[in-house]
Structure formats: structure tokens, C-alpha cells
Design a protein around this nucleic acid. Sequence first.
RNA 1: GGGCCUGUAGCCUAGCCUGGAUAGGGCGAUAGCCUCCUAAGCUAUAGAUCGCGGGUUCGAAUCCCGCCAGGUCCGCCA
Length: 577
Amino acid sequence: MDYPLTEARKEIKTNLKNVLIQLEYKFEPKLEIPSEELGDFSFPCFTLASLIRKSPKDIAEEIATRIKKGKWINKVKTIGGYVNFFIDKQILITSTLKSIYNKKEDYGNLKKINEKVIIEHTSANPNGPLHVGRARNPIIGDTLVRIFKAAGFDVESQFYLDDMGKQVAILTWGLGNLNSKDIPISKYNKSDHKSVGFYQIANKLMKDDEKISKEISNIIKKSENGELKTLKLAHKAYTPVLKGINKSLQRINITIDRYIPESDFVKNKSVEFVVEKLKKSKYCGNENGGLYLDLESFGIHGRNTKFFFTRSDGTTLYATRDIAYHIWKGKHADKLINVLGEDHKLESKQVEIALNLLDVKSIPKPIFYAFVSMAGGKMSTRHGRVVYLDDLIEECVKRAYEEVKTRKGLEFSEAKMKEISEIIGIGALRYNIIKVQPEKDIVFKWEDALNFEGNAAPFIQYAHARACGILSKMEKNKGIKDPDLFSLKHDSEFNLVKKLAEFPIIIDDASKGFKPHIIATFLFDIASRFNQFYRDCHVISEKNIELKKARLSLVNSTRIVLKNGLYLLGIMAPEEM
RNA sequence: GGGCCUGUAGCCUAGCCUGGAUAGGGCGAUAGCCUCCUAAGCUAUAGAUCGCGGGUUCGAAUCCCGCCAGGUCCGCCA
């Protein structure tokens, strides 16, 4: 069964199409959503007008007079060259609230489809804790995971684990050769923070000492050759780091289904297979033994169009293994999504071309995000200009705690304040990152990150808590059983319901367009309209019992949509705050 | 030098793919609203050459071309 607004749109479109056929206009109409007061759906006649050489205004009127009223179509009005459709408010109210009441936490979700999607995200080098520069990655990734699940897909999240690269090699060397006395003490009692010092010092030493540099190169070489002993050492080195990263992710409600080590593709020889096949490509060239694809004819320009996939000594490169990984992924899913920093754009393109040359069907859809920088320059571990994800989490929660304490210090217990500030702080953090489209640069400022008012998660959580407040006060009354929904007549009520009705469409748009941020905007809108309703339409003090019940039902529906929506963003919905 | 992304009020941002009706919001500012369901809220006011210049179109923030600024990449690194 369709959701109410989808059904309404269908009816209007069918009706409109029929009228166009009647008038013998061959034209595929496109419906728009106008601003509220103009109507619910709108058909602009301008394009059609230029085709048949008639004035848009005349066409609009011609069409409007022929549109029949239906279950949904209540009124048709023309303004200039527009045909504006008004849908029946009562039908929308009753069908939407019933739909929410029936589906509950399932409301908004689209029909299950038998399609598997693998979303690769985070995939950070396991040499230290996650920092804010890349913090968009897990948040965008996890939000996409949740959105695609809601859109009916079978979703698996994957972390591609670079266990044989330079970064892990440096860490491995550091842990094997440095004395923990010489490592600066971390302020966090977390395994990733404890390890990163070894990496940093080793990194520094390597630059001045050729011997060390050579030893590290050796580690890399050995792991590339698939030498198990070295890979085991590396595994031992990065595992605690990964554990720490995982812990941070868990705290912001992110779990990764599967970690895929890069070395797997060396061990199972699938990289060799990739090399063998690419060798046969007509774009393959050889430079002193190193093999490359010439990508000039694929629109790759710049100083160097050569995409090397082996070194002169025959060993493979990161990108080669990435190709093997993607071939493997493609066999296990119908759709692939990769969340990547914008620095991976070229590499991603190269892999895509290679996959095409290898006749691989499933080409990944990359979602690129711009880095988070700090006011005054780039983030850099060396210059101490780094803010870790853990720093950000701590600061957000701490600030949330202060807010909770000033507001509810007398009312809530210490434990409750702690619990709520965790929910609010984490929510604010995730929301702040997801509300902006990924490709936009973000300059990190504490004032912005810690602002809990306006377009921020606490605003939405607050609306949810308010709704819960009303419901809990009314619990003793019989409540929502068989409310007469026709008694909802106030504009604020209708405006809210109309927005609630859009939820499934928003999920559809967000998944089809890979746009997690529109969920955030939508929820802000709901919360905003709920606050207006809250102002205009009192529930508890309402004397008319039928109206009171109907409003209660609306409050409960709003609560459900807010909760479901926040869930998509990985944000908890507190019942009080 | 070349490729890709971004440029919307003091600050942040939606809309751009798929051109359409007065460019939506938020922060900050100013002025109001708690004997009434949580004021992390609500209402109002001020604030925009949609980076700049051309073009296409009945119509351009949106499409095309050129330029400017910022980010990012152009390793037999990962």
C-alpha cells in the first residue's frame, strides 16, 4: 500500500495526464511542490505553452476546468501559468495519522527490496585515533547505512583495513623498537591514543635515520609479499588501535559489520589475477618493468596519466589491491557505495576505469566529503594542530552536561544528567556534521560545534521530549483510542501532519540521491512545526474530549516520526531533557 | 600547467543534478512573549549585487562559456 502523499500525487498525475490526452496535448507533465499557501502540488504550463504556442495562462485555465475532484483532489486553482492542486485536508490528516499509528517504528520505511548494498566507510589507517578532519566519514557512512536500510535495502557496512601499508609498518616498527618510557603520555586511557605515540616518534626518527627508514621499508616489502610472520606482527600492532577506533565509533552509535584486511587479497592471490588481466589490456604499458594503464583516453588529464599497478620489481600497489577488493565486493552485493575523502577522487576514478576494463559489472558509487579544517590552517598531527574525534566527543558531552545542569540540576539525579548529556552531546555532534552536504568545506569552530540552539540536534530532541511530556501526563486517561481525527482543524495541526506525511518521500529522496543531510533538514522542519502546534493547540487543557484525543494522537504521531527520523541519523531521542 | 569540488546577508546553510511564482532556514543583532502541556521554545524587525563577466531561454542561484578566490589531487605512497 502506498503512503498517503504518494497516493495523492499519483491521483493528481493520472488525472492531469487524462486531461492532457483529452486536450490532445502530447506532454509528460511534471508536478512541483509550491510554497504552502499556493497549493499542495502544482503544474507549470510554460514548457507546454511554448510547444503548442498558446499562452500559459489559457492552458492553465483550460486544464483546471477539466480536472475532476477525486479522493484527494479537493480544489484546483490557477495563478498565471500554473495549475495549483489542493488536496483534501481531512483525508490527508486521517490517512497519515492512521498510517503512523499502524506502522509505528516502521513508519517511513519503504518496502523491502531484495537488493544488497555494501557501504564502505571510515577505512582509516589504523595507526592512531580518528581525528576530526576525517570524522565526517563514519558519520556520513553510518547515516547512509541507516537510510538505505529504511529504504528497503539489505545493507552491510565494511571497513577496508589497510594492514600492509606504510602507516601500519611505521607503527609496527615503533612498537617493536621503541621504549614506552620515551613515548609521551596520552591524556586518554584508550588503546589507540596509547599507540599513536609510537607511530609519531617512529615517523620522526625515520626521517633522519636511513637505517630505520630501511627497516620500515623492509616491513612493507615483507607484508606485500604476504609473509605471514610480518603480517602477524602488524596485526598485533594495529589491533589495539582498531579497538580504540571502534570504541569511539560505538560511542557515537556506529558499528561496523565487517573489517576486510587488505592483505586478504594478497594471500588469496586475487591481486595477481588482477595484474594478469590488466596486463592484457590494450592500454597497458611498461616502464622499466613497472606496469601501468594509460588513462589519457579516459579523460584523466594532468602531468601524469599513467596509472601504475605494479612496481618495477613486480610487487603490487595499494590501488591494485583496492581493485581486487572491489571485484570481491561486487560479487557479494548489487550496489556498492564508498564514502571517501576528496583526496581519493583520482584513485577512485582510476579504480573505476580499471574495473570497467576488467568487465566488472558493479561499479562503486563514491560519496566524497571535504575535509574539516581548523580556522587558521590545516590540521596536522605534527604541529599539535589536531583535534581528535574523542576530543570533540568529550567536549560536546561536557558542554551538554553543563547545559543540563543549569536547566535541570535541581530536578534530575546526577546519573540521569550524565545519561541525558551523553545523548544530547553525541546528538549535537552527529547532527552538526550530517546537516551539511558532504562536499562543502567545513572550518571547525568550537562555538558552532557546541551551539545547542536553533538548527541543531537538541532542538529536535527537545521537541521529542515535549511530546513525551504531554503523553506521559495523559497516560492515565484512556487516551488515543479511536480519536475523531476530523476535529483537527487548526492550521498548525494541518501543517504538522502534512510534514509528517512527507517522511517516506524524504527517505526515498535521501537514498536515491545519496543525500543524508536532507533527513536533518526534514527533522528540523518537523520539530519547528511541532513547536508552533505546541504554542497554538493545547492538549491537556483542551475541554473538547474528541479534539483532545485527536491532538493526543497527533502528538504521539509526531513523537514517532521524530524518533524514527533521529534514529536514521544515529541520534537518540530522550523522553525528557 | 591540468583535473575535480566549493563560493548564497556579519557568520553558517537549503535550493543547483531535473531552469519557473516573493531565494527558504539557522546563528548573531534589535524588540516582545513564562499565574497556561519543558523558554534548549515562540513572535516580530533589520540584514542578499545568489563570487565576477558574458551567453542560451518567455524565464537563470539553477544550464553553457570565460575569469577570480578557497579546498583537493596530479608518487613505481597509502
